[in-house]
Amino acid sequence: MNILVCLKQILDPEVPARDFSLARSHLQADPTCADLVTNIFCENALETALQLRDRHGGRISILSLGPASVEDTLRKGLAMQADAAFMILNDTGHLPDSAATAKALAAAIGKLDRLDLILTGHESGDWGAGQTGGLLAEELGLPFIAFVDEIEETGPDRLILRQQNDSGWQKFSAPMPVVASITNSDHNLPRIPKIRDIILANRKPITSWSLGDLELSPDLFLPEHLLVRVTELTIPQAKGDCAFIEGATKEEKIGKLAEKIAAIARSI
């Protein structure tokens, strides 16, 4: 099976609120206020692919769109044991929306050998739009399943995908090729690469394309051409007026807490 995993590099979402700040444009975060990391859901997706390959064999390619720094994300993916890495270099200085991203990813996919399964993260830890997977499926004219947390191969041309939904899960059978966006679960926590593999990954080749190489317009990411354009960004302030429950003994405090909770419960 030929699997492609799309990986996005983002500002570390675990950056404490006090360190988080905006860029001067006030249209994105200050890219220097935290480290750059691979989006966790994309790593969940890569882990899902690795487990599939462990069980059934196959080949895993990884693909990332972004500035030159996405090489780090691809190197980490290679260290996790992806077979081949591809990057679309965005040196325009503009942030694409999900639709432009999907267009660029689809153009790159057109350059690759036939794929059986294409994975994205369910959403990214920075903008969190959660649109790219579905849009990519449409660009490619393929079926799509969102919120997938488990994939099984059944026979030569179909997969079983488990989707988390509002109250549990559903299993679907889908023909290959199929696009799925991956969400987190207790069995797709990304593996930690071994030191040796990290060193080896640094020597592996990465194929890099410019937008021009993919016959994409250099204007694709211009804000006025996007379908979804950020026009304002602000940092909301937490209220911070918590009434801490005090008391001489633990029992007294628990009693007061119970009273407060009961008052709300009674008012419903």
Partner: peptide, 23 residues
């Protein structure tokens, strides 16, 4: 914001030539 609606949103927008966003 049910799972089905979230799943459909980008695909519907793409088919209608529109713009999609969530949450």
């Amino acid at each position: 914001n049910d799972a089905l609606s979230q799943e459909i949103t980008p695909r519907l927008a793409h088919r209608l030539g529109g713009a999609s966003i969530g949450d």
